[in-house]
Amino acid sequence: MNIMTIIGMALTTQGALFLLLGAIGIVRMPDMYTRMQAGTKATTLGAMSFILGIGFMEPAWLLKTILIVVFIALSNPISSHALARAAHRSGIFPLSRENIDLYKRDNQEDKS
């Protein structure tokens, strides 16, 4: 058991815990947008450090795991951005205690 394996195991454990945290966030949060916040952030870092940890445990695979990590870091925010915009356009508005929704206001001004 060398030092790379130990770093890899630590990264993998941390990644798995963040993935679990993302799943808990999706269940606990009160409305769609906040669920998306918890889901996107926690699962992105979770998957990144999990896969990088596997790469550290098997150094011959490191380059390819880095490729997957870069792809996840680029693609995950894009899909959540597309989903947030689609949800807002299809009429699901965020919960807001002080009623701050500038996007809705600007869209209504454009129409009138």
Partner: peptide, 18 residues
């Protein structure tokens, strides 16, 4: 995110700004 999700009261006040 971890602090918010594991906090029993969910301390948030969301909204959309620009």
């Amino acid at each position: 995110v971890a602090w918010i999700v594991l906090h029993p009261k969910l301390p948030i006040s969301p909204g959309i700004v620009r």
